[in-house]
């Protein structure tokens, strides 16, 4: 393979590794061929022309990030995905013999309240009501974030992720203390362990599917 063809093949491989589809790469390669032909007509060698054409296309990371916006999912669609995950969780519980009311029982609601309470309380204490509400309106309702406010909103998302896990740690600690206090009553141990496990699931959903998705949405919008 000639040098300039090898350069094109390497560029295409880089794009493929970053997740671009066959048609997207084919279109960019056609663009590169046009650009290379024009540069060769102007007197460049094939290698120099190929190098210049690839440089003009731009940094691979920037280009692929721009392409990722194509598949950008609206937050409401994302919420639908979260609801689906929740549904699978309910079905799995039912298959294991647990009744789905366990999810709305005191066992499940208390850890949820603890984690959301720590998360929202921490966000309001750190950023105030207005900025916290703005992050939710951008990431949940799909409002457009301006370039100027995006860095702050991203900070809110990252803090939200950390706070969700902090809430989880507090909930697990509380639960462990509760288990220790009821060791002489085996009937109380099962619900306490269920509380802990369900709380970890809620923390994962809130931190990754919730704030993680919001962070990706704002990053790609502002990029």
């Amino acid at each position: 393979m000639r040098d300039h063809e090898a350069m094109l093949a390497a560029f295409a491989a880089q794009l493929a590794r970053r997740g671009l589809g066959e048609h997207q790469i084919a279109e960019l390669l056609d663009h590169l061929h046009c650009s290379i032909e024009q540069r060769i007509d102007a007197g460049d060698s094939p290698v120099v022309a190929t190098r210049a054409a690839i440089a003009a296309v731009g940094d691979v990371a920037d280009v692929t990030r721009e392409y990722q916006k194509e598949g950008l999912m609206h937050p409401l669609q994302k919420l639908l995905g979260i609801a689906f995950v929740f549904l699978v969780f309910v079905v799995a519980l039912n298959l294991q013999g647990a009744h789905m009311t366990v999810l709305v029982s005191e066992v499940a609601v208390i850890p949820l309240l603890m984690i959301t309470g720590v998360t929202l309380g921490g966000l309001v204490a750190s950023f105030g009501v207005q900025r916290t509400a703005r992050m939710f309106s951008v990431s949940v309702l799909g409002r457009r974030a301006s370039l100027d406010e995006a860095p702050l909103l991203l900070q809110v998302c990252l803090r939200g992720q950390r706070l969700a896990w902090t809430g989880c740690v507090l909930m697990v600690t509380t639960s462990a203390m509760h288990i220790c206090s009821v060791l002489d009553n085996p009937a109380m141990i099962g619900p306490a362990i269920a509380w802990t496990l369900i709380g970890v699931v809620y923390a994962a959903l809130i931190a990754d599917l919730g704030f993680g998705s919001a962070e990706r949405w704002i990053t790609l919008q502002a990029a």
Binding site: H31, S35, D59, D62
Partner: peptide, 15 residues
């Protein structure tokens, strides 16, 4: 224009 940025914009217009 950064030439590679053109195509995602065209694709969004298509969507």
């Amino acid at each position: 224009w950064t030439e590679g940025m053109l195509y995602p914009v065209l694709h969004r217009l298509e969507q």
